[in-house]
Design a protein around this nucleic acid. Structure first.
Lengths: 294, 294
DNA sequence: CGTCATTACGGAATGCGTAATGATA
DNA sequence: TATCATTACGCATTCCGTAATGACG
């Protein structure tokens, strides 16, 4: 087998068609160059150069070898470059999980910030509920999660990305829309309620029951996705607690009302990653996000 | 700069994930292998392997380098082979990519034309979908592609080789076969449809949805290969849009029906090559094909 | 203490540069 | 005899294999 040096030497000779000048270009003397070319020819098994003491010319086989050798050198240059790009996070893959709700709040801006800062990184997106994201992060199937508490702060590191109000989505023609003031608990006396699923939408479920005395007799549906809730509200099936960002869905026939006595910014969205993560692109993305947040 | 041996050594270690076994495979002892890998990492500038005395694993950069190193070794094998081929009087190699569908339409005649006109050229055939072919053409890993639009006409030059009808493959015992007239959209009302994969068979997918109002509720399977579609049709699972050349597959129990209002010759197959290509065999082949087409 | 990667060390091979040789106009 | 590629020779480097060391369960 020949060496990359031999290929490089051959390219120089083939381009100069002169051992002396080629050697000069390679910053060496003629004799070793001569020997390396001979070795190369022996290992290839055919004559690549036709030479006498007057002139040097490529054989047909030499022409073919030259073209291949050039490709080879390009590939040889690319291999370490690719590895280095990955290692410092300038390229590679970043697998991001997000909850459906994230999709209509800040996912878009977050992605455009990442792609602007890391144009060579391939982004993979997967819609998953928080629980799935945490398992995927733990297994290393995901690099970054956009999800909600609670999660294990020993395993995971996180940032608070966004906190927003919890609002009550009601049909536009509902009497509550005409109160003209923040709602009180009493206003919800026996209004049909579309509630979050206690396990599949655990975050919202816990948030709501922690803050408000939910009348379980009022619950007419139990669903796990905000979008489904909004659709049901629009269909007049009841009212539902949703994060403020649900507004951008722009579903017709739904109003969003504020509740008195509810902690502001109650709905939190976190960026979460595994403390053991090693994907350089992740840290580069976090860095870019931190910079743009400031 | 690293050496080809180091690349070969790294590939062995990356595949075995064990220095001892890799060394055995390379017919050497562990210590020099260890040192070569260290040297390689130093020259690349990043860690390629994560290792402790218990286990060896690839880093992200290592994965990237592995892929490039494999490509490099292929190129290193090809260079002398190309030179020897020329020296033996065979005038070159032509690497042709084709889609699976091409295999049962014109690939046969095209190959026999090329071999008749260029008996001294070695042909290499690789079945690849259009996207893979384009990447391989761009890298110079392929000389000629037989694929479908769209592709970048700045990078690639092309010929329209063939355009054919899009037909509906239906089970022979299906009521539609007894209509005795071209099908209309209404005839497909709620017939189960075997559809193309939107990304892996993007060309056909786009072609179909552009020309026909596909009822997505009717889609019973999503597949990426025409042959698979035909098999599913033969098994009575539904109907499928296929190019006319699928007929030559001769699958029993399948009829091919024409559709009214569908652009004729809708399915295009192109010969595609890189504008920067320099392989003389490519131009000789194109010349021969042009002559025989006239 | 067994496994496996790494470091230490001595000998063989390889490659460079300078010097000598050979071939050609 | 001038030019240019090749062979000869001596020295430095590189690389291998064996042996020793170190880390880890």
């Amino acid at each position: 087998m020949f060496t990359l040096d031999q290929a490089r030497h051959f390219i120089a000779v083939a381009e100069e068609l002169h051992f002396g000048r080629a050697a000069e270009r390679l910053e060496m003397t003629q004799p070793p160059l001569s020997r390396q070319i001979q070795k190369l020819e022996r290992s290839v098994g055919v004559a690549l150069l036709e030479r006498d003491s007057r002139k040097v010319a490529l054989t047909a086989a030499g022409h073919a070898f030259l073209a291949e050798a050039r490709r080879l050198m390009v590939a040889a240059d690319r291999a370490p470059a690719a590895a280095r790009r990955i290692a410092d996070g300038r390229s590679g893959e970043l697998r991001i999980g997000f909850t459906a709700t994230t999709g209509f709040s800040l996912l878009g801006t977050l992605l455009s910030e990442i792609t602007r800062a890391l144009p060579d990184v391939d982004l993979t997106l997967e819609e998953q509920v928080t629980g799935e994201q945490l398992r995927a992060l733990e297994r290393g199937d995901l690099d970054l999660g956009l999800a909600r508490p609670p999660f294990d702060s020993v395993l995971f590191e996180s940032w608070l990305l966004l906190s927003e109000h919890l609002l009550l989505a009601v049909p536009s023609d509902h009497p509550l829309t005409r109160l003209g003031r923040p709602l009180r608990e009493a206003d919800l006396g026996d209004v049909p309620l579309i509630m979050h699923h206690p396990t599949r939408a655990r975050y919202f479920y816990d948030l709501v029951v922690r803050q408000l005395p939910v009348e379980h007799d009022n619950v007419v549906h139990t669903v796990s996705q905000i979008l489904t809730m909004i659709s049901l509200v629009a269909a007049g099936r009841g009212v539902a607690f949703v994060p403020e960002s649900a507004r951008v869905l722009g579903v017709q026939g739904v109003d969003y009302l504020r509740l008195a006595g509810l902690a502001p910014d109650a709905v939190e969205l976190h960026a979460i990653w595994n403390r053991n993560a090693h994907n350089p692109a992740l840290f580069r993305a976090l860095h870019a996000l931190r910079a743009s947040a400031a």
